[in-house]
Design a protein around this nucleic acid. Structure first.
Lengths: 122, 122
DNA sequence: CATGTATTTAAGTACTTGCTTAAATAATTT
DNA sequence: AAATTATTTAAGCAAGTACTTAAATACATG
């Protein structure tokens, strides 16, 4: 990819210039957003976020039960969610409880709303 | 993964049962939603959707220019977006114009809103 | 302190993703 | 009809993802 390849006669060069500018303005925001969406777009992680929103807090062990998955598998998802500030953890004895952080509530709210409707709404 | 592994003394079996039910109710919707989010969570595709929303319609060639990517790379993204009803195409001569479909406007609207704010809003 | 419980970490692997390059289609122009 | 233009399709590959199993860590209890 070096030179411009769009050489249609009717190509609207102003439009292309305008689009390039628009893209460069949101470039950073797009990166930040897709970074978060790539976490939420996994069905296991979305389920984890969904039950945490309903239940305040759950431990790894609970989630493993609920999702019918091995503990390490769940733990690895939780780590990703924690690394990107979707959840926080608190230790109580040898049990570690996870709960939703407020950081991304605004991003998540529309998804939870959709899930609480009929499947055909999505 | 066969038997339940959560054998804490304090484990709240009712809570776990309740969560399992909640999950099974949204199981299908979660699949449908993550299916769509996995498309949007790619930065190239989100940019494509973003400029299409602003510009009504663009051809593959335009997008290749705007995104500074090869034509086949863009074309493959467009195919995915078309397969899942995010965009439609119309042929005009040998040029194929892509535009946003209405199907997922509700899902996309919050993202476009976020992008139009400051990056730190995300 | 040895054993058991709750969780994380790490290595290995199958699957998926997103690009590249080259070839195939299809419409247009000469 | 041959050459040009716009796009898609396909094969190949490097990187990323999500699981598995086994080992490591950390707290609790007999």
């Amino acid at each position: 990819m070096e030179e411009n390849s769009c050489i249609r006669k009717e190509a609207d060069l102003n439009q292309i210039k305008r689009c390039k500018e628009q893209i460069s303005e949101v470039e950073e925001a797009v990166g930040a957003l897709t970074n978060k969406l790539s976490l939420v777009s996994n069905s296991v992680r979305l389920k984890i976020l969904y039950v945490l929103q309903a239940e305040e807090r759950l431990c790894v062990c609970d989630l493993s039960d609920i999702l019918n998955m091995t503990i390490p598998a769940v733990s690895q998802h939780l780590r990703k969610l924690k690394d990107r500030d979707f959840v926080k953890s608190e230790k109580e004895g040898q049990t570690i409880f996870y709960s939703l952080r407020d950081d991304h509530r605004e991003l998540l709210a529309p998804f939870f709303n959709l899930l609480n409707r009929q499947p055909e709404a999505i």
